[in-house]
Design a protein around this nucleic acid. Structure first.
Length: 667
DNA sequence: AGCACGCCGACT
DNA sequence: GTCGGCGTGCTC
């Protein structure tokens, strides 16, 4: 230990190195300005970085000659409030990510770069006519009362309500109660549902400043929004997962809408789950949090069962709207044309004739998923990935859906040279073509990533849908989430089977959620909805349970299966993901990690290293090592231990790796 | 992660 | 001769 005359600044820096760095204070210095949580500009090797002062210490194990002097203190007040700082610290330790990177990630880019935290804009204007709350049904009333009873204490509510049961109305009332106490509210939503309408609805209701944190905000706008929330001027903040780190003056309530949605889990770098962090944040702030969904995650349902969460249920559809009718169509025994059974086509025709809209759901974009040679069985593959290229017709080309590589459509087979190439299988483009033939007089509106990529394109399509009376809407998952289509009376699921036999143990849960969400688009307003599900396995017990007994039975069945198989949420997973250009390097690195795991004590199961489901992506080989433990504590303990060893292991630059705690996708 | 240093191959 | 390829090592 080196004794230093003065104070030493212990600073968290935005680098993947999982440690803090010590600096001497800048000269001259007023010691009282050294407050934890302020930003400090420091030299770091050849660069200068903006870090966060974590603590001021008297001793350091770093040799004095290595200590550099900090350049500048950037704040007079801490940029991190106590609650956000605690949340970041907890996240860094739970997800085993470098604290400096977590802290930097929690700030708007402008602040990360060292720009001053000053409010420039005038307060946000309030637009729109005041909208008055409608009458509540007893279930809604009860939910609101229970949330209100939580009154300034940490409580987690699971609000389970089918689509159209009036979840949003419960949110709005709960928010109104909080606003009346002059507190603020954070609303987290999946990316897809953050539309202008959502924001307008909140604004019209409360006539208070509502701020939305979109992905399309500029960095200055984002900084201003952040500052308005921190100062308390913004009363309601609606945002996607990163909004969980927004600072507030007086936060009174957090709402997580569509809590089952996997887009709350960040899938690169810092792999946090915004829903889980929202619960953590509510606990830190000692406030209630409401998790809402028509199809709650098994994790949340288990927490209800274990009495950690309070269950609130909205069993019926609000108003006069009726629940949709489900029918399974056994496509093995029906005449098929372009993936559509005669029964589905006939049903579409009759709904369209009555001036209603029909929605078809097919989770596969492009024209055909495979281009196949009928002579030699060659299949067009991506050169950089371990995948098939998807045949697109408009514009005509082959496209890899994993690395976005594009190629011209070959005239002849790449193997035998015969001109016997055939697009096999059905994507949304092909279905669109077919529908145009069957229904030449009906507008067909396709919604998938290929035609919503441009800014405002989605909005445009949604408007087109609402303008038309009878129309066919056709799309991928995008269509299933968040949007309301009041004129849709028939929903067709073109292929429900992909979720039934997947290698991913969560596939069934996600299939069930998606089928329910898709169905939720139909039968709004006074028009009852019908859902036709095409399958080759109509006898499948999970499908049967879902259709006959509804989601809660379905979820209970899945929970039972998970318990028997000791899968999450009855056990806890973490995955080391490694990638390298040389095929063996990633696997070798993971094997080394596996040895360290085996050597450490603790009841964990190790699986792998195994090649990822898509073993090669963008030219790099991907390998996984799965770590499974019965208890969360055991897993956390082991991971902490292992990471300390990895620092010494130093895999070199040939292997890139990440640790994914609570992965949503294990394969 | 970045970024510099360092040691080998083909270029004005 | 030197420009630049990426292996290796370090960051208070």
């Amino acid at each position: 230990m080196v004794q230093a005359q003065n104070m030493i600044l212990r600073i968290a820096l935005p680098t993947p190195l999982r440690r803090l760095f010590d600096y001497l204070p800048p000269q001259p210095i007023d010691p009282t300005s050294l407050i934890s949580g302020i930003r400090v500009r420091v030299p770091f090797q050849t660069r200068t970085l903006v870090g966060i002062l974590v603590e001021v210490v008297k001793e350091t194990s770093v040799p004095l000659e290595k200590l550099k002097t900090a350049l500048e203190l950037l704040d007079k007040e801490p940029i991190f409030s106590e609650d956000i700082y605690q949340l970041c610290q907890w996240s860094a330790s739970y997800y085993h990510y470098a604290l400096g990177e977590v802290l930097a990630g929690a700030l708007p880019v402008a602040l990360r770069k060292g720009k001053p935290a000053e409010i420039k804009k005038k307060p946000v204007s309030i637009e729109g006519e005041r909208e008055h709350p409608p009458e509540l049904n007893p279930a809604q009333q009860e939910a609101i009362t229970k949330i209100g009873d939580a009154n300034e204490a940490f409580r987690v509510f699971l609000l389970d309500g089918v689509t159209g049961s009036g979840k949003t109305e419960v949110y709005l009332h709960a928010i109104a109660d909080i606003l009346a106490k002059d507190k603020q509210v954070l609303v987290l939503v999946p990316e897809i549902s953050l539309t202008p309408q959502t924001i307008a609805r909140f604004q019209a209701r409360f006539q208070v400043p509502v701020i939305a944190l979109h992905s399309s905000l500029s960095e200055t706008e984002r900084l201003q929004a952040w500052l308005l929330a921190r100062s308390g001027e913004a009363k309601v903040v609606i945002g996607t997962r990163s909004a969980v780190f927004t600072p507030f003056q007086r936060l009174g309530l957090i709402i997580v809408d569509e809590e089952h949605d996997t887009s709350f889990k960040q899938q690169d770098r810092f792999r946090y789950h915004a829903r889980d962090l929202a619960v953590m944040r509510a606990s830190i702030n000692q406030i209630p949090v409401v998790l809402g969904s028509a199809t709650p995650s098994l994790e949340s349902l288990l927490n209800v069962k274990r009495e950690r969460y309070i269950y609130l249920s909205l069993p019926e559809r609000a108003g006069t709207a009726q629940l949709p009718q489900y029918h399974l169509l056994d496509v093995r025994h029906l005449p098929m044309e372009e993936g559509l059974s005669s029964v589905l086509l006939e049903s579409m025709r009759s709904h369209l004739q009555q001036g209603n809209q029909v929605m078809l759901f097919l989770n596969r974009r492009g024209f055909a998923p495979v281009l196949y040679c009928t002579q030699c069985a060659w299949i067009a593959a991506c050169k950089r990935c371990d995948t098939r290229m998807v045949y697109h017709r408009t514009p005509p080309r082959l496209q890899c859906h994993h690395c976005d590589a594009r190629r011209e459509i070959p005239a002849r087979c790449g193997e035998c040279g015969e001109a016997a190439l055939q697009p096999v299988g059905i994507g949304t483009q092909r279905l669109e073509d077919a529908l145009q033939k069957y229904f030449p007089d009906v507008p067909i509106i396709r919604v998938d990533r290929d035609n919503t990529r441009r800014k405002g394109a989605m909005q445009n399509l949604l408007e087109q849908i609402n303008e038309n009376n009878s129309a066919i809407l056709l799309g991928t998952q995008m269509l299933a989430k968040g949007h309301h289509f009041p004129h849709v009376t028939l929903v067709g699921v073109v292929d429900a089977d992909s979720g039934l036999f997947s290698v991913d143990f969560r596939a069934a849960e996600q299939m069930g959620q998606l089928l329910l969400q898709v169905a939720g688009r139909a039968g709004r307003a006074e028009k009852p909805g019908t859902v036709l599900i095409q399958t080759r396995h109509p006898e499948h017990p999970l499908l049967q349970t879902l259709i006959q007994h509804g989601y809660s039975h379905f979820a209970a069945t899945l929970l039972m299966e998970r318990e028997q198989a000791v899968l999450p949420p009855f056990s806890h997973f973490a995955v080391f993901r490694a990638e390298s250009y040389a095929e063996q390097h990633a696997a070798h690195f993971l094997s080394a990690i596996k040895e360290i795991c085996t050597a450490s004590a603790g009841a964990v199961t190790l699986l792998g290293p195994v090649p990822a489901l898509i073993a090669k992506r963008k030219g790099v080989y991907c390998q996984h090592l799965l770590v499974k433990a019965d208890r969360r504590g055991t897993l956390q303990h082991l991971l902490k231990n292992v990471l300390q060893h990895i620092e010494k292991l130093s895999p070199g630059h040939s292997v890139k790796w990440v640790l994914d705690v609570d992965p949503v996708e294990v394969v």
